[in-house]
Design a protein around this nucleic acid. Structure first.
Lengths: 340, 340
DNA sequence: TTGTAAGCGTTATCAC
DNA sequence: GTGATAACGCTTACAA
């Protein structure tokens, strides 16, 4: 395995009998270097598989060309699509992604954030863990001049850079649609109340129902911790109401799958007696036994792209010293209804 | 945003009126530093949110504590689970993951590999793009002393480090099981023949069928390019055979979903007339309209963990100079049947 | 017990 | 056109 020395600018200089500065300039196409020298240098560099050492460059330029990305769980469809979008834009701009998972734990999130600090990422894109309500560990990144872009699971603070989708509006229009189908008793299986995502959905739900001048009945609102049992309990109670719902909105497509599974066992005629709606629009919906009639798509890939674009923008400002107003970067994406 | 200077060992030294080496030693609990000094240093370090600059450490230790990971497409269930396993072991060992996608293109793969070189990762774990048949761009990593562990999509070369699952055996035992159910005309919708994964499955198919002393009928073997149309064409031909199959094995669960979708339209009684089997055992199978009766699980999370463990082992050897024999690291995982 | 200084790979600033 | 040299943050002999 150990063979030739690792090719450096020094090595090239030695072999070509020129100085390191000449090599450095030749490689970056400095105007005052002769074509002949440039050619010779570039040729040898190629032959030796020379690749500049970004660690060394960091010292000079204070840039690592690495962006940290932290999500709760990579193998959730939403986040893996999001990261894919992030990575794609990053690569096109010469950046690489340093990646970590919080496993939805604040403690792990802290550890990963520290690792990112230690690696001196140029910026951090993060989707908060469900346990994270404070952001002092992220504030600490200011010390290192590392800008943060929040993604999807954003903190409810002013003056932070964030990309997220408007679940409030999405929910309102979903309810509008359900009403148009003649549904009047719309139930809702929400997620843990600690999640902002839950609050947004609930607000949208209340707004949507209110707009139709119907009384908001909190009997129709349940909660799940995302476990199959949690969801079963929730829908069980809804189905046992004196006046059971004629439509059920689930927190997302996964919750929806658990919910219909239970409903089917209870002989409910899915999407007839009760219309099922949900969020995410995951691609397997097409193949699922009982897909939701409508699902609110948040376009995670697109959101990821936007987050990275925002980061690029922030870094440009940093470079040029033209500090954009904090909180200026606040991109609200439209969530759209997708029908099955 | 710009506030105090970024805390360095130098800064701490200046404020405490000691030398940088004292600070360095204090932080790493050097035995010959007085408790008092250690305490003072650590306290100030904490107050300043000091985090060592891993880029600087790289120069001395020649270690970046970063492992590169390249997969074709992160949002495929298999790969996102794999990366999750990789990341988890990495974090437990103080390593971070630098991540890139090849989008199944050799050209993009090259770009990402160069980025990894430039970032001087300590090692690279890669699942090859489907276009990659040569590995000269990865051989070039030898120059940088960067060990490579291949993951799942491994090259058919001796003397490389790899983790993969034995799809041959998995296929044989799947066919054994189908025979035990009384099925005699087992068809197979394979993937593109360029993929090693396709060859392994086919070899297993032929072996499995042969063991039962049945003639191998290549009429029963079809191919798909993974598009819905490709799969539909494949199953259409199989169903139109004079003697149609009584069991169909699909390349993976996604192909399976497209296949049954078509079969249902043709009034086929799924998993009665024809038993459907497949590979991957993705978690939505539980919620799908017509899950495969059996799916060969490759346990990507576990495989990811193993790949990272192998990498840690390699790095240890490198450190200690005890070069393990090339090709010594060749971990074949068992793929297991999972029934629905 | 602590300080001094060299060195890692690269770029930028002078010099010639 | 090209070369010498300092600087970036950190570790580690070697001194004291």
């Amino acid at each position: 395995m150990v063979s030739d020395p690792i090719p450096t600018i020094k090595e090239i200089a030695k072999r070509l009998n020129v100085s390191v500065s000449t090599v450095s300039r030749a490689l970056s196409d400095h105007p005052r270097i002769s074509e002949k020298t440039k050619e010779a240098v570039k040729e040898l560099a190629k032959a030796l598989h020379y690749e500049p050492n970004s660690k060394a460059i960091f010292f000079k330029q204070k840039k690592s060309y690495v962006i940290g990305v932290i999500v709760p769980l990579i193998y959730e469809d939403f986040f893996s699509k999001g990261i894919s979008g992030i990575e794609s834009v990053a690569m096109n701009n010469g950046y690489t992604i340093l990646f970590g998972q919080s496993y939805d734990s604040l403690e792990k999130e802290r550890v990963v954030v520290d690792a990112m600090k230690s690696q001196r990422v140029d910026g951090l894109i993060i989707s908060l863990s469900k346990e994270t309500s404070r952001n002092d560990h992220l504030k600490a990144l200011d010390t290192y001049n590392i800008p943060v872009v929040y993604f999807d699971r954003v903190p409810s603070l002013p003056d932070v850079n964030k990309v997220y989708s408007n679940l409030f509006e999405g929910t309102v229009s979903m309810i509008e649609w359900l009403f148009k189908q003649g549904r009047k008793r719309i139930a809702f299986i929400n997620g843990p109340s600690a999640l902002i995502a839950s609050k947004e959905r609930l607000d949208g739900y209340i707004e949507g129902v209110s707009r139709r001048k119907l009384k908001v009945d909190m009997q129709m609102v349940e909660q799940t911790d995302f476990s199959e049992e949690g969801t079963h309990k929730a829908i069980a109670r809804l189905l046992s109401l004196k006046k059971p719902p004629d439509a059920i909105i689930s927190f997302n497509d996964y919750v929806h799958m658990d919910a219909v599974k239970f409903a089917v066992k209870q002989q409910v005629k899915i999407n007839e007696e009760i219309l099922f709606a949900s969020y995410a629009n995951i691609s397997v919906n097409k193949h699922t036994a009982y897909p939701p009639v409508v699902s609110v798509d948040q376009f995670p890939y697109k959101q990821g792209e936007e987050a990275m674009k925002m980061m690029m923008e922030l870094l440009r400002h940093k470079q040029e010293g033209t500090n954009a107003a904090p909180g200026f970067y606040n991109k609200e994406m439209r969530a759209l209804l997708v029908f099955n």
